[in-house]
Nucleic acid binder design. Sequence first.
DNA 1: CAGATCATGTAACTGGTTACATGATTCA
DNA 2: TGAATCATGTAACCAGTTACATGATCTG
Lengths: 187, 187
Amino acid sequence: MTGVDIAFAILAFLAAEPLSGYDLKKRFVESESLPWSGNNNQVYRALVDLHRAGLASVEVQNPHEGPSRKVYALTEAGRAALRARIREEPELPSYRLPVLVHLLAADLLPPAEVDAMLGAYGESLRLKRLALEELQRRARPPEGASDRRNLLWRRIAERPLALIAAEERWVRELRRELASLPGGEPA
Amino acid sequence: MTGVDIAFAILAFLAAEPLSGYDLKKRFVESESLPWSGNNNQVYRALVDLHRAGLASVEVQNPHEGPSRKVYALTEAGRAALRARIREEPELPSYRLPVLVHLLAADLLPPAEVDAMLGAYGESLRLKRLALEELQRRARPPEGASDRRNLLWRRIAERPLALIAAEERWVRELRRELASLPGGEPA
DNA sequence: CAGATCATGTAACTGGTTACATGATTCA
DNA sequence: TGAATCATGTAACCAGTTACATGATCTG
C-alpha cells in the first residue's frame, strides 16, 4: 500500500459514507482533482481487494429486484489503515504538461503557426475551466460536515481550477512575449 | 502516434542535435518539465521504433574501441512528422496531486497531525524547488540558438519551478486557514 | 584497484486505459 | 419502444517503472 493508489482514495471516500462501486466510479469521473478516470476495471477490482484485506465490509442491497448494489463500508481496520496513510507525508506533485513538448522544438514552425497552436490550447483551457466552474457551482459540500471538513473539500475542489487558471495566464503571457520578439507575428 | 508519447519528445530533442540513447535518457532524467523518467526500456525501444519508421537515422560510432554509441539524427520524414505534431493542439495538462487524497479524509486526524503532515510536505516541496533552481542555474541554453528558441527553452525550464512554488504557497495558505479554525492548533 | 560514468539492452511487473458484455429500471 | 441511467463485471492492451545484465573507460 505505497504510492498513490486508488484504494487509498476509495478508503477516503468511504470514510464519509458507505458507497457502491458505481457511486465511487462517479466520484472519480466527476472529480478533476483526483488522478483516476474511474474506469470499472480499477474500481471494482480495488473494492474486491479492500474487502479481502478486511478494510471494507460489503452489504448487498436489492438481491431480488432491481440491479443489485454492493454497498461497501469502512471497517475499523480500514479506518485505522486510512488514518495511518493520511499521516504519511504525501508524494510530491507531478505535472503532465504536453504543451511543453510542443514548445521544445517549436522554432521549426513559423511564429504564426505556433501562435495559432497556443491560441487553440488557451481556448481549450478556458472551456475546461468554465465546465469545471459550472461543475463546482452545482456541487454542494457534504451536508452536516464540520467547518474543517467543509474547508478541506472546498480547497480540494478548487485546486485544479486554480492550476488551470494559472496555465491560461501562462499561455497568454508566453504568446505576448513571442509576439514581441523581432519577427513575432501580429496577425 | 497520438497522445503524448516519448517518441514525440525524442523527435523534438533530435531536432536540435543528433543524440544517442544515453544522451536522451539523461535529458529526460534531468528535466522536471517532461513527464518521463527516462528509463532505458522506453528510450531505447522508442529509438528502434523511430528508426524502423524512417523518422530517424542511426550512425554507430567507435565500433571497435570504447563503448559503441548509436547516434540518432532526424531524417527529413522525421522533421516533417515533428512539425505536423507540433502544429496539433496540445493535450490539456493533468495534475497529479497526491496531497489532495490525504486531505480528502483528513478530519479523521487531530489538527496537529494534519498540520505536521502538511508541514513535512511543504518542506519537501521547498527542497525540491531548491534542487531545481540549482539545476536550472547551472544549465545554460543551447548555444547559438535564436532569441525565439532561447525564450522557449527558458519558459519550458521554469514552468515546473513556478508550479512547485505555487504549491508551496497553497500549502502555507491552507495551514494558516486550518489553524485559524476554532480548535485549530497553535503548536 | 575501486568506484563513477558511459553505454546498450532485456525481463517482469504495475497501473491505467478502452472496449466489451450483460441486464434491469426509469422516463420521455 | 427506445434512450438514458443504474449497476456489475471481464478482456486486451499500453505506457511506464524497477530491476537485471553486461561491459568498457575514466578518475582518484
